[in-house]
């Protein structure tokens, strides 16, 4: 069950939110890179998302304490940026660019194909937790439109067949 705030009730109860000693050292190192340690907030939130899977409210509060910020200040930041997930996400993120060049090259068709193949709508995660589907703004690879980002990788020149091959590679 997903709670109203977008977090998973079971996850909230079971997973203690805490960085390892090594990660805390990394947090400290990141904070030391900047004239004001608050500048390390985005890097540390990235680290938190890698560690805990998504940025739950507990994670926000935990990170806030690492920076002597109020949780509201961290919540402002987390809700502002699109790359922070506030609810559990799939093991893979498939983000299709839907901006102008990709649109001209058939992005709506690619999104429709993915929705059919995955059986989910944009913004949703497959029941097996394999894939979260997104439709996103310009990823700046318009020369290869239509394109999408799959986790860390850019996938170019998409066709339904190519999309199917990519999906097969996602476990």
């Amino acid at each position: 069950m997903r709670g109203q705030d977008g977090t998973d009730a079971a996850t909230r109860a079971s997973t203690p939110v805490a960085f390892s000693v090594e990660q805390l050292a990394e947090v400290h190192r990141l904070q030391g890179l900047y004239p004001d340690r608050r500048a390390a907030l985005l890097p540390v939130l990235h680290l938190a998302q890698e560690t805990f899977g998504y940025v739950s409210l507990e994670v926000e509060a935990y990170v806030a304490a690492l920076f002597d910020l109020t949780p509201a200040h961290v919540h402002e930041v987390v809700t502002f940026y699109t790359l922070f997930f506030r609810a559990p996400k799939g093991r893979h993120i498939v983000a299709v660019c839907h901006n102008l060049s990709c649109h001209l090259a058939g992005a709506p068709m690619i999104v429709a194909h993915l929705r059919r193949r995955l059986g989910i709508d944009v913004g949703e995660t497959t029941d097996d937790g394999r894939v979260t589907l997104q439709s996103v703004e310009c990823l700046c690879a318009c020369e290869h439109a239509p394109m999408m980002q799959v986790d860390d990788r850019y996938e170019f020149g998409l066709t339904p067949e190519k999309v199917d091959r990519i999906l097969e590679g996602l476990r």
Binding site: N99, L100, S101, E137, C138, C140, C142
Partner: peptide, 11 residues
């Protein structure tokens, strides 16, 4: 922070 739709040079 390249992001202007239609732009990919900085990449």
């Amino acid at each position: 922070d390249e992001g202007e739709p239609g732009t990919f040079k900085d990449r």
